[in-house]
Amino acid sequence: MGLITEKTPLPKIQPVKFLLNWGRRYSLWVMNFGLACCAIELIATSTSKHDFIRLGVIPFAHGPRQADLLVVAGTLTDKMAPALKRVYDQIPDPKYVISFGSCSNCGGPYWDSYSVTKGVDQVVPVDVYVPGCPPRPQALLGGIVKLQEKIKDEDIQEKWASGHSAVS
């Protein structure tokens, strides 16, 4: 991504922008942040029947430093939240987060719990929310397509300039 600096307006040129985003959106190394039963659905989405590799999502990054996409699948507790923040911070930009399932969206059935974080968006910025308890693999495929639409129209220079950083 050495092409993109403040002095090089290259990504502003339409064909370059298209090519760049086309490449990025079909090569998403996914980081599996599975915390509960939703993780099983996430893993099921990666296996042969649903097979999200056909959408260019590559399971699974060996560590956050190799990842582009973080899928938070499951119940995030207040005790686990610093670990999620740490994993997110270790992922190199540009990075995307999918919040998968009711628990990570808003606390879900644990809405009144003393230990559950009500929404991972309190810890990391979320790009796509996938509702369900747990959502079916098809729902995650839908979420991935949604994210890819978002990446398609993205101006990466703007994304970086907007001081895109985690809510702390």
Binding site: G107, W111, D112, S113, Y114, K118
Partner: peptide
């Protein structure tokens, strides 16, 4: 404890 106040509630 029964008297523990849950913020959401």
């Amino acid at each position: 404890r029964k008297d523990f106040a849950l913020m959401s509630r």
